[in-house]
Design a protein around this nucleic acid. Structure first.
Lengths: 140, 140
DNA sequence: AGTGTTGGTCTCAATATGAGAGCAACAATC
DNA sequence: GATTGTTGCTCTCATATTGAGACCAACACT
């Protein structure tokens, strides 16, 4: 990976969008990023990018998510327009979740970050080890 | 923006990396993403991508972050190798934070998502409005 | 009748975050 | 020389947010 930033015209301007010289507190990007950066959001987006899933399937696919957070996160992703929820009134009920076109568009951008994480998790682990060792050494 | 996914060979495989057919609970990508997707991480990365900042400068730049979370988030970003922290032993002390090359590399991937958010925050707001209206209508 | 499956919600404990005070060591001001 | 201000933190305590698990209705299967 190279360390260059693709488009230098962005940078912090990205976060300042629409409110030049103003505080970053009410920045619209933060509002959008907040949902995406939820603890389970990228994982569920990643799953749904592969194919549609039922509620219970997602639950089994992500073993350590609580049912409560699965419901809630899917609800947020649906509200922001990334996920489509379709109820089939069978008994027992069947609810299918899938990505919308908008969601696929967003995933196209998120994917870069996930891919970077996949390639570089070794580097992160190494950095953590170094940091923790330096900290312990300082305590001597 | 088009809705296509750039590289179909990834998808969920990204999250399954290193543990095929296994649960997603101990996926290394989740470990890496967790820090990046912290509430303040992308905002601080975005600021530091522009230039180096001192602690107090970041505090003023992001008015609604608590000092506690600023310290903590910068510490996590440093531990994962994205941020360099340099202390100048002046009185009063001066601490400068900057991106490492590794951090710039990560920001190169994160940037796509931030840019998407900038371009599409209108769409998200619209989706939310529609969702909330449909919900209210259902309560009639 | 009993057991299991479905997608939820509700309650309550654990955890994470925010608001604000306190702190040591000086510099500048009055 | 006493006050005031600055720095980058850390500590405490109130408030969100999240997790663990019970409970639910409506059926199918044994």
């Amino acid at each position: 990976m190279d360390g260059r930033i693709a488009n230098l015209s962005m940078k912090l301007d990205v976060y300042r969008a629409m409110s030049p010289e103003q505080s970053l507190a009410d920045c619209p990007i933060r509002d959008v990023i907040q949902t995406i950066s939820g603890r389970w959001s990228s994982l569920l987006m990643s799953a749904l990018a592969e194919r549609s899933y039922r509620f219970g399937e997602l639950r089994r696919l992500v073993p350590d998510i609580s049912q409560r957070m699965l419901t809630q996160t899917l609800g947020e992703l649906q509200r922001d327009g990334y996920v489509h929820r379709e109820v089939f009134p069978t008994k027992p009920p069947k609810v299918e979740y899938s990505l919308t076109e908008f969601g696929r568009s967003m995933y196209g951008a998120l994917e870069h970050l996930l891919h970077w994480a996949e390639v570089n998790h070794g580097g992160v682990r190494q950095a953590r080890r170094r940091f923790d060792e330096a900290k312990n050494a300082a305590l001597t």
